[in-house]
Design a protein around this nucleic acid. Sequence first.
RNA 1: GUGGGUGUAGCUCAGCUGGUAGAGCCCCGGAUUGUGGAUCCGGUCGUCGUGGGUUCAAAUCCCAUCAUCCACCCCA
Length: 419
Amino acid sequence: MPQYQLVRGMRDILPSATARWREIETTVIDVLSRYGYEEIRLPLLESTELFSRGVGEATDLVEKEMYTFPDRKGKSLSLRPEGTAGCVRACIENGLLHNRKQKLWYHGSMFRYERPQKGRNREHTQIGAEAFGMPGPDIDAEMLVMLARAFRDLGVASALTLELNTIGSAASRARHRQALVDYLTPHRDELDADSRRRLATNPLRIFDSKVPSTRAIVAAAPKLHDYLDAAAEAHFDDLRRRLDAAHVDHRLNPLLVRGLDYYTHTVFEWVTEALGAQNAVCSGGRYDGLVERLGGRAIPAAGFGMGLDRLALLHERSVSADYAQADLYLAVAAPEHASWASALAERIRDATPLRVLQHAGAGGLRSQLGEADRCGARWAAIVGDEEMAEECVSLKWLRDEQRPQAKLTVHALIDALLA
RNA sequence: GUGGGUGUAGCUCAGCUGGUAGAGCCCCGGAUUGUGGAUCCGGUCGUCGUGGGUUCAAAUCCCAUCAUCCACCCCA
């Protein structure tokens, strides 16, 4: 057993997985940039207050899941548990929202002190995006259309369902919340323990309870939908028409409530059945009041976070792919050919974009070709006495039995590799 | 934070009512002195998670602890 072990909830992403991760990341980032989103890079560490104020004091995320500690001068810092608060802070602080719109994306680790299980680690990686300054359903719709494209490009669309809901304006949400608390308080003793706790913290979540007796009480409770104002309904209807027109399938889930305080109006979640209990792969929504709450002007916004750890699990299930380490493996018949082969490898790298893996260390030609096979290379190039004498290379197609091995000049070799 | 399961080779796992550790895969070499994938032969790799206890003797029984997995909870 090793002397040092991973800190609980952290994870190593090993070479056998990183090629897949990289493919996922470049695919998603490419789609984002095709919709005009620009990258912003943000710190992992922020003042604790940013999250308690932005995400909400009473949320589970802030209440019990943050990595919080004092720095050397006693100031309370927290590892970011999510990306939106920090992004909004950076935008306000740098004047990015002054009289202009912004579409931004970021990529990186988030930290939450939770009990690890499948699809849930204490460090996880998200790609998130935020759109500032656009109040209408057009940007909500574009964001969802964009995500649908990203999931199609990734090859995981068939495993995902888009769930959608509106929670209305902050004002109508507050009215509903009060009505709900007024309705549930007389039934307080009949609720399960979790729901009693939520009555004070986040009563909307009581709708999610799986306890039958609680469900029976909740069935007659005031519905959020009945408290929506006309503008909120119009916004939501407009969004749904746009999604229909774009053929983005979605399912209404009136119980879908984001656990962070800042959400308003549109909320959404892409869920899968394939990953067990942790089924949300990407979720987000509008947060029209957050910029103001964090000290900026009243600027409407929408955004999402996408969990790459879960997306990678899903991708692994949905897309089988061979990620080769190299394109060409350069083998030598004997050690004295190695320096000539090195020069050849450099010429190939100069002339082509190929990944050229040159043999190093001990091992006969037989074992070198074994390595060539294992690294996934399409070709093996062999250098021996005969080749060196004739300034040639023997090229072997490892994945195509039909093509015979051929002795080629260096020029002909490069042409063959580029063909 | 709560409940349950599991820790033995790099990986997947076997190891009975205690007697001093095994298989398959992988890797290396050979059969094939310059040609991979198939087959056969040979070989390397273990603080049996950690600490303590019981015992002549512990991978095996007991206690503690750490890690891990699944679920609750929560979320990406």
